[in-house]
Design a protein around this nucleic acid. Structure first.
Lengths: 136, 136
DNA sequence: AAATATTCTGCAACCCCGTTGCAAGTTCGG
DNA sequence: CCGAACTTGCAACGGGGTTGCAGAATATTT
């Protein structure tokens, strides 16, 4: 409980029940969540718009990061908390075609790539799709 | 012209002006296109729905492939034509934060990754965001 | 060249995603 | 406990994407 408040405080956000609930949902379920997932979990308590704005705020403050997907955006907690100025993510995301879950593989980072002359990379996003350990 | 028809024929699709136009738009612009891009280019000639269905058909037949993006899906031509049964892509996509274009870097393929026990990878999708040679 | 079966297109309608403006409610510092 | 600053809910909107159906176009057969 207090941990939630602390996390919010560190990022200069007011503590509201919606923010606490969204944050604890991310912590309890370990995988990446879409807005729809959160609306399913909390939709009776909060307006859709509020959940959208909470996600947007968390993104800006570096509490969560985007996870790309071929059928819609998802979000996951930033492990080492990022700051408003700098998001740093170089880990791999894995989406299971059987159970549909997307997870961060925090320990695996994206291998370096030698780009041609003139390209200046800033962000990397690697999504691997396949079957996860739970589903085979 | 005839090349367009041939491509369609190879994939067992009837030649229609919409399909020819969508295909040639992909060939002329070299970069990845969203549905919106195509609607902008061809929207006066064809209905939105027809363009959606054309994209879906091309996807299924292996003429184009999905390109991940942090703000919506895009599509790009499959270089070595894929088949209905098997899409094979291991190249890198680069999105420029200045001009907004997304391009396939056909020559660069995604480095191998050693996944933990139990993961069975099937598809890989690496998006690098940054500044492209044209924009710096 | 005409008739047929098959496939494609346009239209209307619909649902979901995500955003914005505004008024009312809540948080936090003094 | 007061006021300033921020957050929420509501209503409304635009865009993305899909489906069903009737009419049009394409390919095939004779």
């Amino acid at each position: 409980m207090d941990q939630l408040r602390d996390t919010l405080k560190v990022h200069h956000l007011r503590t509201t029940t919606c923010r606490e609930d969204v944050l604890s949902t991310f912590i309890n379920r370990k995988n990446a969540l879409s807005h729809g997932d959160l609306e399913g979990a909390l939709g009776e308590n909060y307006d859709r718009v509020t959940i959208y704005r909470t996600l947007k705020t968390f993104l800006e403050k570096g509490i969560i990061h985007k996870v790309l997907d071929d059928e819609g955006l998802r979000y996951a907690l930033c492990s080492h908390s990022c700051s408003e100025e700098k998001h740093q993510h170089d880990h791999i995301h894995f989406k299971c075609s059987a159970c549909g879950e997307t997870n961060c593989l925090e320990n695996l980072h994206i291998p370096a790539v030698q780009l041609p002359e003139g390209y200046f990379p800033e962000h990397f996003n690697l999504l691997i799709q396949g079957v996860c350990p739970k589903c085979n």
